[in-house]
């Protein structure tokens, strides 16, 4: 993997189908999409419109039924699990709606996990900067269940950023949060985008959040519509 490559996400004729009983659910229908480096993009749509599925395919967490996903010039749909794991820990950061923290690890350990899995020596200056930015400095030794939802989501964001990936994929990061915390998280993501120039894709059904991003992509019944 060439670390100096220009990160750009591209979906080409991407489809995803799920069998459901005797029927087939067409979650994504021939999606073509380009995400430029450093952009803040939101994907909006109703429940079941396919927005999360798209995000998962773009992040290499799931395999498409057909079509391709490119990260720079790497075709994700062709890579082995080992290569995909490496891409996930070095080039993509994920933030999930349910936070998905490892309960046995404390805040600092959760944040450092992607760095350690890459067998790199953590850049503690960078990690402390992240903790300061996300307001976690006082909580680094806490276990996830000792934190509030907002705090847990901030840990998840810090973890997503810890290995300094070019792309952050957020799957409804505010879905489990109250309005005040939601605003705090969104402000943080904006700040990260501004300070670290990361490419951020955020899946949401909240129009307010979508409005605050640079580009809005609409999903409906597996099809993609983009607001000009």
């Amino acid at each position: 993997m060439n670390n100096s490559m220009r990160t750009q996400l591209k979906a080409v004729n991407l489809t995803k189908e799920y069998p459901m009983g005797s029927h087939t659910v067409h979650a994504l229908q021939t999606i073509n999409l380009n995400i430029d480096e450093g952009t803040f993009v939101s994907i909006v749509g109703t429940s079941g419109s396919g927005k999360s599925t798209l995000l998962h395919l773009l992040g290499g967490l799931d395999k498409p039924t057909s079509g391709d996903v490119y990260l720079g010039n790497i075709r994700l749909t062709d890579t082995t699990d080992k290569e995909l794991s490496k891409i996930r820990r070095e080039h993509i950061g994920f933030v999930f709606q349910k936070f998905c923290l490892i309960q046995e690890l404390n805040v600092m350990e959760n944040i450092l996990l992607p760095v350690l899995l890459s067998n790199k020596t953590p850049d503690y200056n960078y990690v402390h900067t992240l903790c300061d930015l996300l307001g976690l400095t006082e909580r680094t030794s806490h276990l996830p269940y000792e934190l509030s939802g907002g705090q847990q989501q901030r840990v998840a964001i810090a973890r997503a950023l810890s290995n300094d990936p070019q792309i952050i994929l957020c799957d409804e990061p505010t879905g489990n949060l109250d309005k005040k915390t939601r605003n705090e998280v969104i402000d943080l993501l904006k700040q990260i985008h501004k300070e670290f120039r990361k490419t951020i894709l955020i899946v949401t059904h909240d129009p307010d959040i979508a409005e605050s991003t640079e580009r809005i992509i609409h999903m409906e019944d597996g099809y993609l519509y983009e607001t000009p």
């Binding site: 967490l61 794991s85 490496k86 891409i87 996930r88 998905c100 923290l101 490892i102 996990l113 992607p114």
Partner: peptide
């Protein structure tokens, strides 16, 4: 838990 680890970049070998 393992899915979260794998989403965080942990390979099957690890």
């Amino acid at each position: 838990q393992f899915s979260i680890l794998r989403a965080s970049g942990m390979s099957i070998q690890q």
